[in-house]
Amino acid sequence: MNIFVSNLSFDVQDEDLKDFFTPYGEVTSARVITDRETGRSRGFGFVEMTDEAASKKAIAELDGASVENRTISVSIAKPKEGRSSRGNDRDKFNNGNSYNQNRY
């Protein structure tokens, strides 16, 4: 199960995030999301656990917990909404009708 963790301290690293969840079961991955330009934490991350029951227990017990003087939020990660990438919306602007076609 993929778990979303937010309101993390900017000092929390991937290994720290993994350590928070390991007491509940096997953690297959833990990743703190960082800013592409600065490399600094964005204050949230994702944890992947193999056992659904362990995942649910971790969510129930860690949601609202205090970690490094911050109250974290823990929930089931929702799939990313479909976002268009640059240039893929061009067909919305050009429907095949020329701007000048109806002027003359």
Rank of each mutant, 00 (worst) to 15 (best):
K18D: 04
G96Y: 09
Q101T: 10
D91V: 04
V5D: 03
A65P: 03
A77V: 04
S9N: 15
L8P: 10
L17G: 01
A54Q: 11
D91R: 14
E52D: 12
R90M: 03
V74G: 01
S9M: 05
D51N: 15
F10V: 13
T34N: 13
L17I: 03
N7R: 15
R70S: 08
N7H: 15
R90H: 07
N94P: 00
A65W: 07
K80Y: 02
A30E: 10
R103K: 15
G25L: 12
N69R: 06
V32G: 04
P79R: 08
G45C: 04
Y99L: 11
S85L: 13
I76G: 01
G82N: 09
T50G: 04
N94G: 03
Y99Q: 07
Y104M: 02
S29F: 09
G64E: 10
A60S: 15
G96I: 07
G43S: 07
G25H: 10
S98W: 02
T71I: 15
K78L: 09
A53S: 13
S98I: 01
D35W: 09
S85I: 09
I3F: 05
S55V: 06
D35Y: 07
V47N: 05
S6Y: 08
D14T: 06
F10G: 10
T22C: 03
Y24G: 05
L17P: 02
P79D: 08
K80R: 15
Y24K: 11
T22H: 07
E48K: 14
D63H: 15
G39Q: 09
E81Y: 00
F46M: 09
S6N: 14
G87V: 06
T38D: 02
K57Y: 02
D63M: 07
A53G: 00
G43C: 05
E15I: 13
D16G: 06
G96H: 11
E37P: 00
R86E: 06
F20T: 00
N94H: 14
A65Y: 12
I3P: 00
Y99E: 08
S73Y: 03
Y24E: 09
G64K: 10
D91T: 07
N102T: 12
E68Q: 14
A54E: 10
D14P: 08
N2V: 04
E26S: 13
V74T: 03
M49R: 06
R103Q: 14
D35T: 13
G96T: 11
L62E: 09
S6Q: 12
K18V: 01
N102I: 05
D19K: 15
E48P: 00
N88W: 01
I72P: 00
F20M: 14
S75A: 13
Q101M: 08
R70T: 08
S75K: 14
V67H: 08
N7Q: 13
I3H: 02
I59V: 14
P79E: 13
A60H: 09
S85G: 04
F93H: 11
I59D: 01
M1Y: 05
S55F: 04
K80V: 01
E81H: 06
E15R: 12
G43F: 04
E52T: 11
D14F: 03
E37Q: 14
F21D: 08
F44D: 04
A58Y: 03
G45M: 06
N2F: 02
K80H: 04
G96V: 08
V32H: 04
I72E: 01
M49W: 02
N102K: 12
G64H: 08
D89C: 01
Y24D: 09
T38F: 01
